[in-house]
């Protein structure tokens, strides 16, 4: 399960919308071992493509070093699909190189709503996981579902059958 603050999800969605129709990508760092994403780092898509994304290698080195200095790790690695569903492509699976990370996908193919899903990708095996969006501003213990632009309801979002 990925638990992530609503303000971070909002920032990721805003990034994906801003770069649409190109794919957007980035990282959310968090303290090592915490499994808690706390610091959103939008990255440049050096491929500047509607169907491919790639971190700029030099930007990645700077960001990974900064995480190391802060005792952080990449808790979430996200990117957008701009014309297809938020499910890892074979390309995504081939490249997935952070076995501890949550791979968050945002689909911006619909203009008014976003599909947000999270996956573990380890040794080529994809496992979808539930996403809990935590609204810290209201109640740090409240867990709400992301209902694709509707008003949030106080229910867990559980992915079906995976």
């Amino acid at each position: 399960m990925l638990s992530i603050d609503r303000s971070i999800v909002d920032a990721i969605v805003a990034h994906a919308r801003r770069d649409h129709p190109d794919e957007a990508c980035g990282v959310v760092a968090g303290p090592v071992g915490s499994d808690t994403p706390t610091r959103h780092i939008p990255m440049e898509n050096s491929a500047r493509s509607m169907t491919f994304y790639e971190f700029d290698s030099m930007e990645q080195l700077r960001v990974w070093r900064a995480m190391d200095d802060r005792d952080e790790e990449p808790v979430v690695i996200y990117h957008s699909h701009t014309a297809t569903e938020a499910y890892p492509s074979r390309t995504d699976i081939s490249f997935a190189g952070e076995p501890g990370a949550h791979y968050l996908l945002v689909s911006t193919r619909e203009p008014d709503t976003e599909e947000i899903r999270s996956f573990r990708i380890v040794d080529g095996v994809v496992t979808e996981e539930p996403v809990r969006i935590v609204d810290a501003a209201v109640d740090p213990h409240a867990v709400q579902s992301y209902m694709f632009g509707q008003s949030p309801a106080t229910v867990d979002y559980e992915c079906s059958g995976r």
Binding site: C25, A47, T51, E54, T84, S89, D92, F95
Partner: peptide, 17 residues
């Protein structure tokens, strides 16, 4: 020397990838 996993992917078709 630093080794990092390249972070890349996307909806691009498998054949092209």
């Amino acid at each position: 020397v630093t080794i990092l996993p390249a972070v890349a992917g996307g909806a691009f078709g498998f054949a092209a990838a």
